[in-house]
Design a protein around this nucleic acid. Structure first.
Lengths: 255, 255
DNA sequence: CTCCATCGGTACGCTACCGCACCGAAAAGA
DNA sequence: TCTTTTCGGTGCGGTAGCGTACCGATGGAG
């Protein structure tokens, strides 16, 4: 086997957008960590210790209700960061962060973030713009939950996830998607079957392959494109392609 | 009639939390404006010119879909401000802001906000903490839209609105509430009828009187208390009581 | 005082989604 | 290899909320 590339901090678009001087100051403090599928970066109402910058992983913000049911309120990949609360002034949030697609992330200790924040420089502005994009995504999730069918929401979800990956293969069971959307597993089964019959995706025991992305977009509700456009404007973010994933002897992130 | 008091900037909790030196610097630039019922402070994707600090008015952030249906994603009263985008780095948002309860607000021109923002002082920190609280509210709206009945959501909505008023009388038609919740008017009628039969509220042509707030809280879903607690922690916000509303010869806010 | 728009209450069929239960195929473990 | 677990597909009754249509009461405008 040929050696696989290490994840670079620059795979994260926020880190990449920093000017060299800020990078040289900041990067020495970055720690590369592996994010295992379904791992928790933050638990509800627990103090956060780091800010995470995903390179090739996807993490979902989700709220777990008293009765155990859950709903994802947003998705974060290499376009963003986790732990905005730390620079917004809080210590924790009512929601938790679960790894939705395994991969890597660089993390920065809380103190280091606050220090950099107090310089009121580039990183601060970037983080705030990203926060604004995140607000848009959460808002649109609220709208979508109210008005759109499971079918449409599944499309939106697949698209949001795909934008944060370098390939067309999503690894998630229907049960998992159901938990994210906050619907029944059977509901996802039905929706996924329709998409398969239309030749848009193929589903095989936790492996989804997207075959026809344009059609997937046309089947989705407006919510996807609203979020996408707003993110573009705020962050000049264009989803990546062809980034290689790699295994390595890298510590695994825990809460 | 005895003369009625002018709205004071301090009725807005964010403005009130500023130290005297910041207040003396900032308050001269505040402009008092009247917010008429159903007035629009911002329209979707239009540039914003001011940041608004409500004193006794309530404004809703809502998203209007392509087909015209709408959903409110949050409520803002004297605990907060409108126009967070302006200091987060954007110029506009996909959502609009509609006055849900007439009253007054102080507003600050965009430039003045950015100037104060660049001082990186108290106002910045306050605004960021408030933004964090707002994110919580939007997130919880997403959860609520997914999992809870119209009944529960109506309770949540009434409570959120009440917290931002000084009295028990809400002026909103069922049609209006339906637009805010993103449901049918008839759905609100049914839910409101139940609440009336339980003696929790009385409804009379657009006038709601809350008769039994404790019961209203127990009929609401957890979403209300989650938002409330989080707001308390972040802003030490305790809803006001007994603030007097006043009429005056004050300019009306337009977009 | 009369008229008319607004507001809220009612009825009915429909559909999307839920809860539950069951089942076979595929993968993982022993 | 055999067993166990995981995953996704199916069926069925129940129901919350939708779209539509209608209608009486209220209160403001003239």
């Amino acid at each position: 086997m040929s050696p696989k590339p290490q994840p670079e901090p620059q795979q994260n678009h926020l880190l990449a957008a920093l000017t060299p001087d800020v990078q040289t100051r900041l990067f020495p403090y970055l720690e590369l960590v592996a994010l295992p599928l379904r791992g928790l970066l933050y638990e509800s109402r627990r103090p956060m210790r780091h800010v995470y910058f995903p390179t090739d992983s996807i993490v979902s913000l989700q709220y777990v209700m008293e009765n155990g049911a859950s709903t994802a309120i947003s998705v974060v990949g290499n376009e963003g960061l986790l732990g905005i609360t730390l620079f917004m002034g809080g210590e924790s949030t009512p929601s938790r962060s679960m790894v939705q697609s395994a991969g890597y992330a660089y993390r920065l200790p809380r103190l280091r973030v606050k220090e950099e924040f107090n310089r009121h420089g580039q990183l601060l502005m970037l983080m705030l713009r990203y926060t604004q994009a995140l607000i848009t995504q959460i808002s649109q999730t609220a709208v979508c939950n109210r008005h759109h069918s499971i079918n449409q929401q599944l499309c939106r979800w697949l698209l949001l996830s795909m934008d944060r990956l370098s390939h067309n293969n999503l690894t998630m069971t229907q049960e998992f998607i159901a938990n994210m959307l906050g619907v029944r597993r059977e509901g996802v089964t039905q929706a996924a079957l329709k998409l398969q019959q239309l030749g848009v995706i193929s589903y095989k025991r936790g492996m989804i392959k997207v075959l026809d992305r344009p059609q997937l977009e046309s089947l989705s509700c407006e919510c996807y494109s609203v979020v996408r456009k707003e993110t573009d404007v705020l962050l000049h973010y264009v989803p990546q392609r062809n980034v290689i994933v790699n295994p390595a002897t890298i510590p695994t992130a825990t809460i």
